[in-house]
Design a protein around this nucleic acid. Structure first.
Length: 425
RNA sequence: GUGAUCGUAGCUCAGGUGGUUAGAGCGUCGGGUUGUGGUCCCGAAGGUCGGGGGUUCGAGUCCCCUCGGUCACCCCA
C-alpha cells in the first residue's frame, strides 16, 4: 500500500455536513453586504510581494515573518495573500476605480499566514471582507460597521464591538512620542520583551497580555487624549451615527492593530462565547493613505473582515450553527427497473422547482433505503414501484408525519413542495 | 519563533509495574422471510497502535528523533 497523506500543517478539510453550515455563514455575510450595496470583487490569491510589503507595512510581524513568499519560474517574487485589503486596493487602483465617487466591494476567500496553528488560527484561513473607498465621511464608517452589526444579529451570536480611534499622521506622531517617553520613564521595570516592542511599535505594548506590563502601563497616555481636531470631530460623528443606528460598543482605547495602514476609526468584534485566545471574529478600520502607499491616487478607505473559521467555531460553541441547507426535500426511489427512467424525470422536475431531490444510486432493500432516508433527514420519499407505475402515480411519504399518499405523477412536485415547505425543523 | 501537553478502528476512548491472535461505545454495512424509517435484537467489515530508529528473548506500553493535533505566549480576523 502506498503512503497516506495528511493535509499540511495548519490547514484543514471542510467536509459535509459541517461544510454546509460554514457555507451558510459565508452566504449570510455576503447577503448582508449585498443588501448594503457592496458589489462582488475577486482578486488573485497571490500578488507581487511588494503589494503586501508596502501595503501592510515592512515592520509588521505579518510581513516580517508570516508570509508565504516564493519565486515563480520567471523569477518574480510572489506572495500568497496574508490579508485581503492590499490586493483589493491594488486592483481598484490598477483599473482606475478610485478617481471618482465611492466604491463599495465585498470579497471572500482563503488567505495564508505562516504561524503556529491553534484553535481559530490556521495557516490557511478564510475571511469575508468589505471595503468602501473614496470617501472620508463618518457616515461610511458607520455604514461599514452596521453591516457587521447586522451579520452578528442574524447569526444570533453574542459579540462585543470594541471601538477606538488611532488618530492620523497629524496627531499620532505626538502621541507616539508621549507614549515612548512614558515607557522609557519606566526604565528596567519594563520586561525586556516590552522594551523590544516599544522600539518597533510602542502602541503595541498596550495590548500585551503580561499582567506586569498591564499594571505598569495602566496610567500610560492614550491616543484618545491626543486626537487632533479633525480626528476628534470624525470620531464623534461616527459615534453619533452608530448610536443613532442602535449599535452598542465598548470603548477600547488600547485596541491596537498589527497592520500599519490603519488610521482613525478602528474596531473589532469579540466573541463572548468563544473560550479561546483567538476570539476576534472580525475587525478592521480606516486606511486613508493606503492607496497612495500603493502608487494610487488619494483615496480614503475603510473596511473590515469577518474571520469565517472563527465565526463558525464561535457558533459551534454557542450551539447556534445554522442548519445545513442541503437536506433532501425528496428522495426518489425506483423499486423496479421500469421505474428508473420516470424516477429520473421526477428528479429533474423537482430540481427545476427549486427542491433538493436525489436518487439513491446504491442497491439496497426498501428497508435499507428508508433507514438511510431517515438518517439523512429527507423530508419526503417518493416511491415508484410496480403498483404505482401501473396507476400512473407515486407514493409520496411524509417522513415527519410518517404518512403516505398516492399522488398522480404530474402532481408530485406540488405535493412535495407542500410537505417539505411546511414542516421545517 | 518560545514553552507545555497529547497522538490506539471513520469518531470518542479503554488498554496497572513491557509478555500469547489489540478491545468497547458510537458510526458504517448486512439480517430480524414478499414493498416501508430513526428505538430494539443478531451479525459482519474496519487498526502498518502517527512515522523512523533504539533498548529487550519480547514494546501500543521504556528511550531518542521526526511529523501532526491541542493550549498558552507571540500575532491577528
Amino acid at each position: 500500500m502506498s503512503r497516506r497523506f495528511e493535509a499540511p500543517k495548519g490547514t484543514f478539510d471542510q467536509l459535509p455536513p459541517a461544510s454546509g453550515s460554514r457555507a451558510e455563514v459565508e452566504r449570510i455575510m455576503l447577503e448582508q453586504a449585498r443588501l448594503a450595496g457592496y458589489q462582488p470583487i475577486e482578486t488573485p490569491i497571490f500578488e507581487d510581494t511588494a503589494v503586501f510589503a508596502r501595503g501592510v507595512g515592512e515592520a509588521t510581524d505579518v510581513v516580517q515573518k508570516e508570509m508565504y513568499t516564493f519565486s515563480d519560474k520567471g523569477g518574480r517574487s510572489l506572495t500568497l495573500r496574508p490579508e485581503l485589503t492590499a490586493g483589493v486596493v491594488r486592483a481598484l487602483i490598477e483599473h482606475g476605480r478610485l478617481t471618482t465617487g465611492l466604491t463599495k466591494v465585498v470579497c471572500s476567500g482563503p488567505q495564508f499566514r505562516y504561524e503556529r496553528p491553534q484553535a481559530g488560527r490556521q495557516r490557511q484561513f478564510s475571511q469575508v471582507d468589505i471595503e468602501a473607498m473614496g470617501s472620508d465621511a463618518p457616515a461610511i464608517d458607520a455604514d461599514v460597521v452596521l453591516v457587521g452589526h447586522e451579520v452578528f444579529r442574524r447569526l444570533e451570536i453574542p459579540v462585543t464591538l470594541l471601538l477606538t480611534s488611532l488618530g492620523d499622521p497629524v496627531c499620532r506622531p505626538a502621541y507616539r512620542e508621549a507614549l515612548l517617553a512614558f515607557l522609557n520613564g519606566l526604565g528596567d521595570k519594563l520586561p525586556a520583551a516590552a522594551r523590544a516592542r516599544a522600539e518597533q511599535n510602542p502602541l503595541r505594548v498596550l495590548d500585551m497580555k503580561d499582567p506586569l506590563v498591564e499594571e505598569l502601563t495602566a496610567e500610560a497616555p492614550l491616543m484618545r487624549d491626543f486626537l487632533c481636531g479633525a480626528c476628534k470631530a470624525h470620531d464623534e460623528a461616527v459615534r453619533e451615527l452608530l448610536a443613532g443606528a442602535g449599535v452598542e460598543w465598548v470603548e477600547a482605547p488600547r485596541l491596537v492593530r498589527g497592520l500599519d495602514y490603519y488610521v482613525r476609526t478602528t474596531f473589532e468584534w469579540q466573541a463572548g462565547s468563544l473560550d479561546a485566545a483567538q476570539n476576534a471574529l472580525g475587525g478592521g478600520g480606516r486606511y486613508d493613505g493606503l492607496s497612495e502607499a500603493l502608487g494610487g491616487p488619494p483615496a480614503p478607505g475603510i473596511g473590515w473582515a469577518l474571520g469565517l473559521d472563527r465565526t463558525v467555531l464561535a457558533l459551534e460553541q454557542a450551539g447556534r450553527l445554522p442548519a445545513d441547507p442541503w437536506r433532501l426535500d425528496a428522495l426518489v426511489l425506483p423499486l423496479v427497473p421500469a421505474a428508473v427512467v420516470p424516477a429520473q424525470g421526477l428528479v429533474r422536475d423537482l430540481r427545476r422547482a427549486g427542491l433538493v431531490a436525489d436518487l439513491p444510486y446504491v442497491e439496497r432493500t426498501l428497508n435499507g433505503h428508508m433507514k438511510a432516508a431517515a438518517k439523512a433527514g429527507a423530508r419526503t420519499v417518493v416511491i415508484l414501484g410496480e403498483q404505482e407505475l401501473a396507476a400512473g402515480q407515486a407514493a409520496v411519504r411524509d417522513m415527519t408525519a410518517r404518512d403516505q399518499l398516492p399522488v398522480p405523477l404530474d402532481q408530485v412536485v406540488d405535493h412535495v413542495r407542500r410537505v417539505a415547505g411546511g414542516g421545517a425543523p
